[in-house]
Design a protein around this nucleic acid. Structure first.
Lengths: 131, 131
DNA sequence: CAGGATCCGCTAGGATACTG
DNA sequence: CAGTATCCTAGCGGATCCTG
């Protein structure tokens, strides 16, 4: 227990608090499950990568979005940015322990999704044919 | 948009296929982890609810967004819409087994997030104070 | 190489009004 | 009650150019 920061710090957060519109963790949920954040987590899951390496790993992400995503993730303490003072620049990104924990859950979801994707697509077309 | 020659249906999907920008499951990931879809999953996790009940359970969602979210989820086979032919209308929503599976992973993520939220917020402010 | 700055289209999403 | 229809805005996100 640190100091007198927020009352929330010592509070047992109950499941479903997210359903409260005023719960600030909704914002965090939005950021963590945002399109690119999840993919960055996958890319960095067990690697330390440079900016352009991440960009190549995740197909289709623009420089702007990757930079922004990395900044947000660093702010949330999900990853560490390490810049070497050299020319040309060399910057490495890796998940923090917190980020690695989060990525586990993300990975569980994406794994499930990928393995059930064919089924879902098939059901979708079945339903469309049936009306 | 349908792609010809997509072997995905019978293929063993490997972990990390989402990092391929052409992987159609990216779209599904976007839908499933969209802001309101996740909250609807939480609300319906162990309940069958009516439209307005869901709306009340999830604070802050508009009618328009709830209707759209429910329609998408039904299309993806995540929930069942059951309408009773009465006046006034009575419509119930519940998760399918598929939806319940997905919600488990979503719940794991949101549980983790809620329990680590205070820590994350504290680290964030610590970092801001430190520069 | 790692981004910042700028411009801009697109769409998620809110507010409101209306209907069966 | 359970939505649809309409209008409108904020901001997500892509493309491009520029810099240390």
């Amino acid at each position: 227990m640190k100091k007198n920061s927020q009352p929330a710090a010592g509070l047992a957060l109950v499941r479903g608090e997210l359903l409260n519109p005023n719960c600030p963790s909704r914002e965090l949920l939005k950021r963590i499950t945002s399109r690119w954040t999840m993919l960055v987590m996958l890319a960095l899951r067990e690697n330390t990568l440079r900016f352009s390496e991440i960009r190549r790993a995740i197909g289709g992400i623009s420089e702007r979005m990757l930079a922004q995503t990395l900044r947000y993730m660093e702010e949330d303490g999900l990853l560490i940015r390490k810049a070497y003072e050299v020319v040309p620049p060399h910057v490495e990104y890796r998940l923090t322990p917190l980020g690695r924990e989060a990525s586990k859950h993300v990975l569980a979801l994406t794994d499930w999704l990928e393995s059930h994707f064919p089924l879902i697509e098939q059901q979708r077309s079945d339903r469309q044919n049936a009306g």
